[in-house]
Simulated assay, not measured.
Amino acid sequence: MNHIVNAYNRFKTPIVKGKEVYLFDKDGKKYLDFAAGISTTSLGHCHPYITDKLKEQLGSLWHCSNVFTIPEQERLAQRLTTLTCADKVFFCSSGLEATEAAIKFIRRYFYSKGQEKRNRIITIEGGFHGRSIAAISAGGNEKSREGFAPLLSGFDKVPRNDIKALEEKISNETAAVFLEPIQSEGGMYPLNVEYLQKVREITKAQEIILCFDEVQCGYGRTGSLFHYQNIEIEPDILTCAKAMGNGFPLAACLVRDYIAEAITPGTHGSTYGGNPLAMTVGNAVLDVMLKEDFFDHVKRVSQYLKEKLLNLAEEFQEVISEIRGEGLLIGIELKVPLADKIVSQSLDKGLIVTKVLNNRVVRITPPLIIEDKHVNTACGVLYDLFFKIKNT
C-alpha cells in the first residue's frame, strides 16, 4: 500500500543514486538525465566540490534563527547583489516561497507609500509561478486551478507578447507586471525581447514594478547567471530557485533598495530561509558557475543541442512542429499529443526528459555540464523514437 499523497504522475522506476549527468535505479540501470530535476541539478548529481562543502558545514552548524547574523548568508547576498541589478536579497527555500515574497513585497511597497489601493498585478497567460493559492491565482493552467476556488483577487492576466492588451489592462490600481521571460511549464515560450523592452519602458514611465520569475530560466541555463542579462532588460524584482542550490532547497527574491525599504521586521520571514546549510551550498554553486569559461561552455553546448534538434525537426516534419527555447531550456513541440509516449519510451531507452503543455511539448533541460557526447546520445534516442512514430 502506498502511503504517499497521489499528487504526482510517477514512473515506477526507483531512483537510488546519481552521479554527474546520470541517474541509477535500484537494479543499477543508468539513465542519461536530460531533465535535471526540472532545471534543478544544473551542475549534475553529487557534484564533488558542493558535496565536500556541505559535509564541512554539516559538522559545524545546520540551523540558526534569522534573529542572528549568518555569515554565509551575508556572503551569498553580497555576491548576488554584486552580480545582478539587485540591492537586497531575501532567502527562502523554494520558488513558490520566492513568488509569495515578491507578491507581498510589491503590495507592501505601495502600502508604505500610502497607496494601498494600488495592489493589482498583471501576469501573462501561460505563466507558472508555483502551486500555492496566490501562485495559481497569478498564473498556472486550468488544471492547476481546478477545485481550489475561490482564488485570490488582484491578478489580471493578458496574452503573451500582446503589448496593447497589457496597456489596456493598466489602471490606477496596477502595482506590478509579474512574468517569466521564458515560460517553461507554459510550453517553453521565450517572450519576445521587443515586447519585454516595451514592458520595461511602460512600467518605468508609470512607476509600476517589473518582476521577472527566473526560477527555471535563471542560474546559468541560458548562458549567463540570469536570462535578463542576455536580453539587457533589468527588472525591479527577480525570483530564483531550483539550480540555485543544485537540488538543495534554496531560493531567493532579489529586490531593489526602494522596494526593500518597505520590508521591516515582522512583515515577512522564513524559518528555514537562509539557513547555514543552504547558504553554504549556494556559495559553492556560485563558486563553480563563476569559474572561467563555465557560461561559455553552456552557450556552446546549447547551440550544439539546438542544431541537433533542428536537424531532427527537419528530418521528422510529420511529427515535430517546432523547436523553441533558449540555452539549455528547450521544447520540442509535436504535431500530435504524444509527449507522454516520448517521455515513457525515452525512459525505457535510458534517457530522462519531461513533458509540458497538454502533452504536446517534450521539455529538454539537461545539466549545464553536459558534453557533445551526451547530446549525441540523447538525440540518437529521440531519432529512433521519432522514426518509429513516423512509420507507424
Score class of each variant (00 low, 15 high):
9 N>D: 06
14 P>V: 05
26 K>P: 00
25 D>L: 02
16 V>A: 13
32 L>T: 06
20 E>D: 15
24 F>T: 04
29 K>M: 08
21 V>D: 00
22 Y>T: 06
11 F>H: 03
16 V>I: 13
23 L>K: 02
9 N>Y: 11
28 G>C: 00
16 V>F: 12
21 V>P: 00
10 R>T: 07
4 I>A: 10
6 N>Y: 10
14 P>R: 11
13 T>C: 11
32 L>D: 01
24 F>Y: 15
6 N>F: 10
16 V>W: 01
10 R>P: 01
6 N>K: 14
5 V>I: 15
31 Y>S: 01
26 K>C: 07
23 L>A: 14
7 A>Y: 15
30 K>Y: 01
29 K>F: 10
17 K>P: 03
6 N>C: 07
4 I>R: 09
17 K>E: 13
26 K>Q: 07
20 E>C: 11
15 I>K: 02
26 K>G: 04
28 G>S: 04
23 L>I: 11
16 V>E: 00
28 G>T: 05
14 P>H: 08
33 D>K: 03
6 N>A: 12
20 E>G: 09
9 N>E: 14
17 K>M: 10
23 L>S: 03
29 K>V: 09
28 G>Y: 09
11 F>S: 13
21 V>C: 10
16 V>M: 11
22 Y>D: 08
15 I>Y: 08
15 I>P: 02
28 G>Q: 08
6 N>M: 11
12 K>P: 00
17 K>V: 05
21 V>T: 10
16 V>T: 14
26 K>N: 02
34 F>C: 02
33 D>H: 06
7 A>K: 13
32 L>E: 08
19 K>A: 13
26 K>I: 09
24 F>H: 03
26 K>F: 08
16 V>S: 08
23 L>V: 02
13 T>F: 02
10 R>F: 15
19 K>H: 12
10 R>Q: 04
10 R>D: 09
4 I>V: 15
18 G>P: 03
8 Y>C: 12
5 V>K: 14
8 Y>N: 11
30 K>I: 14
24 F>I: 09
8 Y>R: 10
30 K>A: 11
30 K>W: 12
28 G>R: 03
16 V>L: 11
20 E>H: 12
21 V>N: 14
5 V>C: 04
30 K>S: 09
19 K>P: 00
4 I>P: 05
22 Y>E: 07
23 L>R: 04
10 R>M: 09
20 E>A: 12
12 K>W: 02
17 K>R: 12
12 K>V: 06
5 V>A: 14
15 I>A: 08
29 K>Q: 07
31 Y>M: 07
29 K>A: 13
32 L>I: 03
29 K>P: 00
26 K>S: 10
15 I>M: 13
31 Y>T: 00
13 T>K: 05
11 F>C: 01
5 V>T: 12
30 K>L: 11
15 I>N: 08
7 A>C: 13
7 A>L: 15
27 D>P: 01
15 I>Q: 06
5 V>Y: 01
34 F>T: 04
11 F>P: 07
27 D>C: 13
31 Y>W: 07
31 Y>A: 02
17 K>D: 13
7 A>F: 15
15 I>H: 08
30 K>G: 06
21 V>K: 06
32 L>P: 00
19 K>F: 10
18 G>K: 00
11 F>N: 05
11 F>W: 04
6 N>H: 13
18 G>A: 09
24 F>G: 01
23 L>W: 02
19 K>Q: 11
26 K>M: 12
34 F>Q: 01
27 D>K: 05
30 K>V: 13
21 V>M: 05
19 K>T: 05
34 F>G: 06
22 Y>Q: 04
